[in-house]
């Protein structure tokens, strides 16, 4: 029992210290991690760009139902989002070698117009400290992370878009 309490308090204490240290997820830039493009090429994710417009990063997987619900829900609205704010969504699949080749057929069959990458060795997922997908981030014009959200419930996409609009309005 003593050891349980000790571990618990240590875990909780470290988490809170770290939160105090870092504030929110804010003002961090993306780490330099090599991802795989759908055509097999490699790409350093820290080099993404959207000409000063906001960027949404979404980490998903073909085996994750809420992830697919989220990205399909956004897909219905995406055309309007792009038109109104110039936002770009980058979908990073954390599918491993079992499913990574199924990502392209899935993305195409749904007609997603997102920029898609795969992180088969979970290098990016680890660098971003993601516990479970779906995980989304919004980057501002300086490509700093200004918003982060884990999980998906229908309606979350509206909150995400509200943040994007705020950013797009700032200039």
């Amino acid at each position: 029992m003593k050891s349980v309490l000790f571990s618990l308090s240590l875990l909780v204490a470290t988490s809170f210290t770290m939160m105090a240290f870092t504030g929110d997820a804010t003002k961090k830039k993306l780490p330099s991690v090599m991802l795989t493009q759908l055509n097999g090429k490699k790409f350093d994710i820290s080099k993404i760009d959207n000409n000063g417009k906001p960027i949404i990063i979404n980490i998903w997987a073909t085996w994750c139902s809420p992830c697919k619900r989220e990205l399909n829900a956004i897909h219905d609205l995406y055309e309007d989002w792009v038109e109104e704010t110039g936002v770009k969504l980058i979908a990073i699949s954390m599918d491993d070698s079992r499913n990574m080749r199924k990502v392209k057929p899935y993305v195409d069959s749904k007609g997603w117009e997102y920029e898609c990458y795969i992180d088969p060795n979970s290098d990016f997922v680890r660098a971003m400290n993601v516990v479970n997908p779906p995980q989304s981030y919004i980057l501002n014009k300086d490509k700093e992370i200004v918003y982060a959200h884990n999980g998906y419930a229908p309606g979350d996409e509206q909150i995400l878009y509200k943040k994007v609009k705020e950013l797009a309005g700032q200039k």
Binding site: P105, Y106, V107, D108
Partner: peptide
Amino acid sequence: EATYSQKGLGVYLA
């Protein structure tokens, strides 16, 4: 593993 895909269609054969 072979795949063919276009808008609205995805085929995976392995």
